[in-house]
Amino acid sequence: MNPASTPSDVTIDIRGMRKIYRVGDETVRALDGVDLTIRNNEFVAIMGASGSGKSTLMNILGCLDQPTTGRYVLNGKPTHKMGMSRLARVRNEEIGFIFQSFELLSRASSLKNVMLPMLYSRRHLFSARRRAKRALDLVGLADRMGHRPNQLSGGQRQRVAIARALVNEPSILLADEPTGNLDSKTTVEIIELFRRLHRQGQTIVIVTHEEDVAGHAERIVRLRDGKVISDAATDEDPIHRDWVRRMAEGRGSMVEVTDAEHELNAMADANKPGPEVRRGWFGKKRPAEGSTVLPGGDDESGAV
């Protein structure tokens, strides 16, 4: 499945974006002047601590929300000028959204879940089922089409969600903490799937706070207090390089990894001590960064 060919190389173009909430008398600047350009066929990780504005940015990127001021041009379409209905159409045709908690319809089979976006589409009227099957095949779930979400493992559920995101051939795939609810083994499977899609030409933007997930992206954008504090290729991102070094040194040691985490958080958010609690799988023994991943084949990796 190839992404829709774009007239220009630039898929996402954000200029001077601000998002301001008013909570009572207080004004919260969730995004405070963000400029961001994402080109076709990039794989970008957006990182940041809680409250850094990365979720707000993600919602605006996914056309679920609109900026207070600033421009957001998606694939040549000025979405900051659009109303609710036109935004819904953009979401349907341009964006594949993947959620942390999968958001599958529990009563419907995998196939029906994947067909859902085409229900609201003017295209693919008569090919919906065929396309959904193809998308499920692409994520390696061809033999699970009739299963309901509660009959699938967590990794399989997320792959159904990915198939659903891909089925309308979106120009960008947005993933909001896609591995947040998964164990280490399944996380690797999902990440590998993202890499494969990226190799096939899919533009991917992923929000995560896990450095090793971000390590698979080509580029890392770091946010703090609603501003972009760092935007560099993964290999050149200082925090990530530091993390890789520490991981290599402190492999297997729970204490060191945890220490590294604390320091990383302190670096990312100098004024705010007290980092988020990390997932347990950091403490597990695992191969060095990026060396090997399990193939995306479908085996029972345990229910979530």
Binding site: L64, S85, R91, E103, Y120
Partner: peptide
């Protein structure tokens, strides 16, 4: 919310 996120318009 999900239906809207995947493109269901308000009238739908």
């Amino acid at each position: 919310g999900l239906r809207k996120a995947v493109g269901a318009q308000p009238p739908v």
